[in-house]
Computed example of a mutant assay.
Amino acid sequence: MSFLNITPILCKLPSSTQRLHIQVKMGSIFKVAVTGGAGSGKTSVCNRLKSLGFEVIDADAIARAVVSPGSAVLEAIAKHFGSGMIRRDGSLDRTALRRQVVKDISKKQKLERIIHPLILERMQDEITTLENQGVPAVIVEVPLLFELNLAQGFDMVVTVISDREQKTERLCRRDRVTREDAEALLDLQLPDEGKIEKSDFIIDNKGSIDDLYRDVDRMVQFLNEKSRIGLTR
């Protein structure tokens, strides 16, 4: 059974007032979304879950794959944002593109209409593959879960939170961007407070890595109780 029923939109974009419509269908596999602001520590949480035996799907990894050199999505980005978005080696210049979209909401919406449908389609394919293999549960790292109204497609939502200063520093270090660019990106996302009230479980990543892992282990216990099946292997 499919997770999301969507149609990819590449070069033909709807007007800025239209929204991406997503039809959600629930399947038998137990789907857990891990979300949180940029730099909150979602990947660290998912790596811990992977080490515990869970199947993990990374939406960011899918996003990188769909904009590979020569892809239709990359061509659409160049068409709508300029050839300067493509590096000499044919890859996407993420820094240049980020600087455009964080300063112009209409450009951000246009980019989302180009890239998100295909990301969601591939995410659906991966979930369906795991379901067909009889996997009881899957963890999906979805950075913009609430911003894209995708929470209803999951059986459980886990949000990773952290201080804004910590997130800013992590973004600067990880993505090699300026503090101004990091803060501009965070400004585009729903604040932690808005995510907390919509989540089933909160992982606080303001402390040490050991503290984070303890929170993840507690989440696994909560997950098993909620799903009523043993999900760890």
Results as ranks from 00 to 15, higher is better:
L190W: 10
F3T: 11
Y213C: 10
L74N: 03
Q133S: 08
V24Q: 14
D215E: 15
K12T: 15
E165L: 05
V138P: 13
L49C: 07
D93F: 09
L10Y: 09
P14E: 04
G153K: 00
L145P: 10
L118I: 11
L10I: 12
A61P: 05
G39N: 10
V142M: 03
K167R: 15
A184V: 10
H21R: 15
D60K: 00
V45G: 13
K12P: 00
L92A: 09
V177T: 02
T168V: 09
P8T: 08
R179D: 00
Q221L: 09
L223N: 12
I77M: 12
P117A: 12
S68M: 07
P8N: 03
D104Q: 00
R170S: 14
R233G: 01
T128Y: 03
L130P: 05
T232C: 06
I115C: 05
Q166H: 05
I105T: 03
T232E: 06
P8C: 06
I202K: 08
G36K: 10
E225Q: 15
V158S: 02
A182L: 00
V157K: 05
I105L: 13
Q124E: 14
H116Y: 13
L118N: 03
L52K: 00
I209Q: 14
I29L: 01
E112L: 01
I139D: 02
I196V: 15
I105F: 03
E121Q: 04
K110M: 13
S199P: 03
R122P: 06
I203D: 10
P136M: 07
I86Y: 01
M85T: 10
N47M: 05
I139C: 05
S15Q: 14
R64A: 06
A151V: 12
R164M: 14
I22Y: 04
E141P: 08
S28P: 05
S208Y: 06
I202V: 15
G230Q: 06
I105P: 08
G207K: 15
K110C: 01
G37P: 14
M219H: 01
K42I: 00
T129S: 14
I209V: 00
K79W: 06
G70M: 11
L212V: 03
S208K: 00
F154E: 08
L188P: 05
Q189Y: 12
G134A: 05
V102A: 13
L185V: 04
S208L: 04
K31Y: 02
V24Y: 02
E55C: 10
G230A: 07
V56E: 06
G27W: 13
R94G: 10
R98A: 08
R48A: 07
K195S: 09
R170L: 12
L52G: 08
Q166L: 10
S2V: 08
F154Y: 10
M85C: 13
V34T: 09
T95W: 01
R113H: 13
G207D: 02
E165K: 15
C46S: 13
L49T: 00
V102H: 00
R176Y: 04
R233A: 06
S2W: 02
E193K: 12
